[in-house]
């Protein structure tokens, strides 16, 4: 029965839970404006925009930001290709070992990230591969594939194979079929998957600490600041920046997939 009223207790605990999920994020924003730079004093003794200017002038932040951005871009591109191929193959076909293939796809996120990280690092060491942007991308693409796959596979299941066959029958070649028939059908799902993959890569720290060597992505920069704080308010400003950068892709991804199939983001 859907019409029965919810009890007040249920409503309060649900709303209380949501507030619990959000208020720490609000705190970060407040701290980005504080005039106190030595401690985490609350409430802030005064408010200032100074730290935004300080952060703007810091070249180490810009370098970390641009590395993270480039890594996320390349990793998302790779994940889009590999995830879409996997989704196209697994959406309809039934074949021996199919369950093992889907297990392999989710394994990089089902096992703790530290295991992926240390495994990659020791493999790089064994094969004498020096750390570079390439090694970071390798790790990120591995766990981003499943995000794209999750979004794409649901859409592929709804794409009727007879559409593709009709396109071939009417004389279109493989490229035209992909461009004019398949892509318009799966486009928004790919865009959503790509945005989530981008947000995931942009924010990833656990695997990255193992594959980055001496390079500093933005999350690694933040981690260093958390362990050995230098200018705390600047860290707050960067935290706000990271929140904003990841907010819009997530919102867009939700917007693009909101009809019907919510691809539970639970599989991160």
């Amino acid at each position: 029965m859907r019409s029965d009223r919810s009890s007040l207790l249920l409503k309060l605990s649900a709303i209380g839970g949501l507030i619990f999920l959000h208020w720490p994020l609000a705190i970060i924003v407040v701290y980005a404006f504080t005039t106190e730079d030595k401690s985490y004093q609350f409430p802030p003794p005064g408010l200032t925009l100074r730290w935004f200017a300080v952060a703007w002038g810091r070249s180490d932040i810009w370098a970390a930001l641009s590395l993270s951005f480039n890594v996320a871009l390349v990793a998302t591109g790779l994940a889009l290709v590999l995830g879409t191929l996997a989704a196209a193959a697994l959406s309809r076909a039934r074949f021996w070992g199919r369950d093992n293939v889907s297990l392999l796809l989710i394994l990089p996120i089902a096992l703790p990230g530290i295991i992926t990280g240390i495994a990659l690092r020791s493999a790089f060491n064994l094969m004498d591969i020096p750390f570079s942007v390439f090694t970071i991308v390798l790790g990120h693409a591995t766990f981003c594939i499943v995000v794209v796959y999750n979004n794409a596979v649901a859409r592929f299941r709804r794409l009727s194979p007879s559409l593709v066959e009709a396109s071939f029958d009417l004389g279109a070649d493989a490229f035209q079929t992909f461009r004019y028939v398949v892509l318009p059908n799966i486009g928004t799902a790919l865009l959503a998957g790509g945005m989530l993959a981008f947000a995931l890569s942009f924010d990833e720290v656990i695997v990255t600490t193992f594959t980055a060597g001496q390079q500093t992505t933005l999350p690694i920069w933040m981690l260093n600041e958390l362990v050995r704080p230098r200018e705390r308010p600047v860290t707050n400003v960067v935290a706000v920046l990271v929140m904003v950068v990841t907010f819009f892709p997530i919102l867009a991804a939700y917007w693009l997939t909101r009809e019907g199939e919510h691809v539970a983001g639970g599989s991160r």
Binding site: P24, D203, L226, A239, V242
Partner: peptide, 10 residues
């Protein structure tokens, strides 16, 4: 989906 480190930091 929002940043893991930001949340820990908060």
């Amino acid at each position: 989906w929002s940043s893991y480190l930001v949340k820990v930091y908060a």
